[in-house]
């Protein structure tokens, strides 16, 4: 087995590719640093000079508005220069290989690549080929990982629940295709969460998912019982086109989060969603906008978490 490609020879975070394999102290370190940036984002002058003179390349091989924007804001608040590249619409369609694209950008003196790619593992390939002073942050690769989303989810849970050591977390919906779920599961288990549940129909649960350290529920009512945290996943509309699900209506009936179902969770349970939400498909508006929802704070914390990740990897 190769060494963890995310860490440098001192065990420090050089790239952020996945939450899996990161030691507990590295994870907590990121969350602590993020906490210090939350203050910055609430100030009148929302800038710190940590990445002044550095170039951050947002390299998105898959369309994204929210994640790209939050990375851009985070980089700008760290005083970096940000270059947004929507590669999906440019060189890749002209047949340029992934590594050629990266080498070209590297020749433009990049310091940090923020990469989103439709294929699992693409950021690993890039990380293997960048120069020693360059860093790679995975902004979502295929079904594999979305580590900054996982970290902001962890940050949100810690903010509202403090201790991971007594929590029951339920993740609901399309686990099969979800990089968000995978990243969050690894983070929760690393930080010592005693019970992580995944809830979904059998068609949306991947083979051997128990091996990730989760309990599997097909019945949402049963799975939500006593939960401290409920994480709803986005259901892509294309899932209805194959043989995975019959309709959005039937999915909502059995796996959509309503106030009635939420009542089975603990009275102080929080409800999270990585966005963008499909109201009436995986979550009812009354819950999304209700008192248990922490969906908008997640977005705010997301900027602080991405600032933390960028400043940490660029400093190592």
């Amino acid at each position: 087995m190769q060494n963890n490609p995310q860490l440098n020879e001192n065990g420090e975070l050089r790239h952020l590719l996945s939450i899996e394999g990161l030691p507990r102290n590295v994870l907590s370190g990121i969350l602590d640093t993020a906490a210090s940036f939350v203050g910055v984002t609430e100030r009148e002058v929302k800038k710190v000079p940590l990445l002044r003179g550095k170039s951050v390349f947002n390299l998105f091989f898959e369309p994204s508005t929210r994640t790209r924007t939050t990375f851009e804001i985070a980089a700008k608040r760290l005083s970096a220069d940000v270059i947004n590249l929507n590669v999906a619409a440019s060189s890749q369609t002209k047949g340029e290989s992934l590594l050629d694209t990266v080498s070209n950008l590297s020749a433009m003196q990049a310091d940090l690549f923020v990469v989103r790619h439709g294929s699992s593992g693409a950021p690993y390939l890039i990380a293997q080929h960048v120069k020693p002073h360059e860093h790679v942050i995975n902004a979502g690769d295929g079904r594999h990982a979305h580590p900054t989303q996982g970290l902001l989810d962890l940050y949100t849970i810690r903010h509202y629940k403090q201790d991971f050591g007594a929590l029951r977390v339920a993740i609901v919906g399309d686990i099969l295709h979800s990089r968000v779920a995978r990243s969050l599961i690894h983070g929760l288990t690393t930080l010592g969460t005693p019970e992580v549940r995944v809830i979904g129909p059998k068609t949306l649960l991947p083979a051997g998912v128990e091996a990730l350290g989760v309990k599997v529920f097909n019945d949402m009512q049963e799975g939500l019982r006593g939960a401290d945290v409920v994480v709803m996943l986005r259901l892509q509309s294309e899932r209805m086109r194959g043989a995975l699900l019959p309709s959005a209506q039937e999915f909502f009936k059995h796996y959509g989060l309503t106030a009635q179902k939420l009542a089975l969770a603990k009275p102080d349970a929080i409800v999270m969603h990585p966005g963008p939400m499909n109201r009436g498909v995986e979550i009812d508006s009354s819950v999304a906008d209700g008192p248990h929802s922490v969906i908008l704070p997640q977005v705010t914390f997301g900027i602080a978490v991405r600032m933390a990740v960028m400043s940490i990897v660029a400093g190592n």
Partner: peptide, 15 residues
């Protein structure tokens, strides 16, 4: 191979 490893890596599996 459709199994725990493919699930972890997020790779589409062949059962």
């Amino acid at each position: 191979h459709d199994g725990a490893l493919a699930t972890r890596l997020g790779l589409p599996g062949i059962p």
